[in-house]
Design a protein around this nucleic acid. Sequence first.
DNA 1: CGACGGCTTGAAGTCCCTCAATATAAGTGG
DNA 2: CCACTTATATTGAGGGACTTCAAGCCGTCG
Lengths: 230, 230
Amino acid sequence: MSLACAQCPVRDRAACAVLDETERGELGRIGRMVDLAPGEVLFRAGDEAPACATLVEGALKIVDTTAEGFEHILGLIHPAGFVGEFFQPFARHEVVALTRSRLCVFGGHDMERAIERYPALARALLRRAQTDVLASRDLLSLTSSPSAKRKVAGLLLAFADAASDSPCHPAAAFDLPLSRGEMAAMLGLTIETVSRRITAMERDGILSRTGKRGIALHDPARLSGLAERS
Amino acid sequence: MSLACAQCPVRDRAACAVLDETERGELGRIGRMVDLAPGEVLFRAGDEAPACATLVEGALKIVDTTAEGFEHILGLIHPAGFVGEFFQPFARHEVVALTRSRLCVFGGHDMERAIERYPALARALLRRAQTDVLASRDLLSLTSSPSAKRKVAGLLLAFADAASDSPCHPAAAFDLPLSRGEMAAMLGLTIETVSRRITAMERDGILSRTGKRGIALHDPARLSGLAERS
DNA sequence: CGACGGCTTGAAGTCCCTCAATATAAGTGG
DNA sequence: CCACTTATATTGAGGGACTTCAAGCCGTCG
């Protein structure tokens, strides 16, 4: 608990960062550390006990699985991000690890009590929920674009921005955090279309691929042009 | 203020319902009532002064306008709903009245002070933000479906559910809250496709149209079948 | 009445999906 | 180390669904 918090890599950015040392220690006692292997499920749709978690390391995806087994990705969680609801009686979506991940998990009722006890925590989670709404709407903008070219360009640009150190410039080289299939599941496309669009961009000199996941971005301006126009 | 709150139609359901009478009176003093005509803009993308509002009567849309003037609808706000962010420096999207609407508007900084003063208000807004995230993800599920048939069916079903008195059964007859163009802007389709899909459902006996906005739902089961399968 | 905006309907073209084959990479066991 | 397997990507051909472009319909309002 205390020890874990002291060494926590997201201790300055996660929601609990608004608490002082003793408060954080108390919160730490009601949570538990969980490690997840890639593909492992944290929450399952329909789970009765509401729960939530702060992501410490790794990456998660929020998945909606349709009746026919078709998968759709509704959002990604990055370190310091918060996932799960504690007001709803049932979990609505699956939460799955994309990579090896470490989380700080809380029971929903414990967290409800905690936000009553620590008002600053409630405000921090509110702030985070508001940015989650914006992120969700950004993805919505992407997916409802009529053209696959724009969807893929927008997603690649988002990944390049996320991989960059500076907030404004996209990274020149980075690894895709998602497989082709997962990218397709985010954008509402097929694997083949995603692959073809990336191939087309490589042919046009906008980027080049190294291995399955590696991207070298040669012309960020053209990429962001594709993401907005045409 | 007090008078307005006492007669407020959403006084039991809005975020401020968690406050007691005196607290609500104090909150009422820092807000102001605003009436909007259809099409009138409440917040504009890029607005510097962060602001937020509780919708008392009517309906709002959250709109993202692309560079070429193409409109995309990211969400709808219903009475007792809350809109706007107070942590972000700039407004990201336009908020526009769909019908004649009445709102209780707060400056962002005033609201920030209010949630520090009233922890219960922060929790209520957190709860609401979490449901907003879910609503946004529901729309995301709809728009990323590959087939226009499913998108339109899903949207009609959502409207039928929203128009119903009982929470589980869709209304048998209701008016569409959106024009064809707005429905298309929600789903990432063209007006023509939306129109054709509705025509096809009428031909199949699932529903019938009365006027431009009226819908009589004959076979809710088939409609929800379309929204999930096929 | 005539104009206008929203809706519907039609015809043609394009883009994406489906189906299918091949390629590449990583992992397993002999 | 290599054959074999499995999972992931790429590439091709064909067909279908949505878009685009265009015309006509219907209600409202000047």
